[in-house]
């Protein structure tokens, strides 16, 4: 079974992002970029499924700038077999989903594993949108995936606990944090990854229109919270909560 894993290049989660002074966005020049953490989990899951023998080939794809090749190389070093870069800037989830649909039609995977959300725009949408465009089943926020020849049993993190659904294949899965702990790529694997095939396409080659639907009117710093006071004891804390803050 072939498997497709979309990975996104995002500002590293350790970077404290700054809003640009002119209010047009956040500062992304010269900041550390990484693979979206949820996508590392997606790649890891794919590699584990391949190690178990259910999956035969893993194709990592990204829609982004030329530099997003770095994230594809990371995916290849973790165990993906080949990679596709679709060059495009600033595609929205709907556009990304349309590109992915075109790639799915070309590659014919049985399963696509995405992250549940990208930690930059936090949209939490692309996987569900791709499932809709393909008319496939979806198992979002997965904390466990059991794959067989004709279906996927997915345990999902939902409000209040866990839910399990059975999906007909082909299907879309999105990863939650507890699905697995991604491996670090070893040096020999990083070297090997340099030789794995990486194809570059343009969105137009796939016949996809990426005209954005959203305009960013402005981006601002959210109101800042002021640090309060340190209290010296539990009794002082409780008395302040009662008489000053009046919340208990």
């Amino acid at each position: 079974m072939k498997l497709l894993v979309p990975v996104k290049r995002v500002v590293d989660y350790n970077v404290k992002v700054r809003v640009k002074a002119d209010g047009t966005g956040v500062e992304t020049a010269n900041v550390k970029m990484s693979m979206n953490p949820f996508d590392e989990i997606a790649v890891e899951e794919a590699v584990r499924l391949k190690e178990k023998g259910t999956v035969t080939e893993i194709v990592a794809v990204t829609i982004g700038p030329a530099q997003a090749q770095e994230q594809l190389r990371t995916a290849l070093a973790m165990g993906a077999d080949r990679a596709i870069l679709v060059e495009a800037e600033g595609a929205e989830p709907l556009g990304v989903a349309k590109v992915l649909k075109a790639l799915v039609e070309r590659e014919q995977p049985q399963l696509v594993i995405l992250g549940k959300q990208a930690i930059d725009d936090d949209m939490n949408a692309t996987g569900q949108m791709l499932a809709a465009l393909l008319g496939w089943s979806q198992g979002t926020y997965a904390s466990k995936v059991e794959l067989s020849a004709d279906g996927a049993k997915v345990t999902r993190e939902v409000d209040g606990g866990l839910e399990t659904v059975q999906l007909k294949l082909p299907a879309i899965v999105t990863t939650d944090l507890r699905l697995n702990e991604p491996r670090y790529a070893s040096l020999p694997n990083i070297m090997k990854a340099r030789k794995k095939p990486l194809e570059t396409l343009k969105a137009a080659d796939l016949g996809v229109d990426l005209t954005p639907r959203l305009t960013v009117v402005k981006v601002e710093e959210p109101p800042k919270r002021q640090a309060g006071v340190k209290v010296g004891s539990v009794s002082e804390l409780v008395s302040k909560l009662k008489t000053e803050a009046k919340v208990i």
Partner: peptide, 21 residues
């Protein structure tokens, strides 16, 4: 969890870019 699971699917079926949260 329910809204986030369902609404992007609705949006894509309608060819609409969802705005979440």
């Amino acid at each position: 969890a329910m809204g986030k699971n369902i609404m992007p699917r609705v949006a894509a079926l309608l060819d609409v870019q969802i705005i979440t949260d």
